[in-house]
C-alpha cells in the first residue's frame, strides 16, 4: 500500500507539474527524442514499483 501511495503522489505531482515538465523536455534546445527517453525512464520506474509490490504481496 505504501507503494500505491508513492505512485499516487508521483502521478498527482506529475499531473500538476506536467506543463512545466513538458516545456522543459520538449524545448527547442534539446534533442528531439528527450521526451521519449524520460518517458522510458518513468516506465522503468513503474516496472520497478510493480515488481516491489508483487514481492510485498507475494
Amino acid at each position: 500500500m505504501y507503494v500505491y501511495r508513492i505512485m499516487l503522489l508521483l502521478v498527482f505531482v506529475g499531473y500538476l507539474l506536467s506543463p512545466v515538465l513538458m516545456n522543459g523536455w520538449a524545448s527547442p534546445d534539446s534533442v528531439w527524442y528527450r521526451p521519449f527517453v524520460i518517458w522510458g525512464v518513468l516506465i522503468a520506474l513503474s516496472l520497478w514499483l510493480e515488481q516491489k509490490r508483487a514481492l510485498d504481496e507475494g
Partner: peptide, 21 residues
Amino acid sequence: VGYGYLAYYLGAAGAVLLAPV
C-alpha cells in the same frame, strides 16, 4: 500543438499507472 499530442498517450498511461487505487 507539437509535443502536446503526447497528452493522449500520457493520460492513458497515468490511468493504468493508478491501477491499484
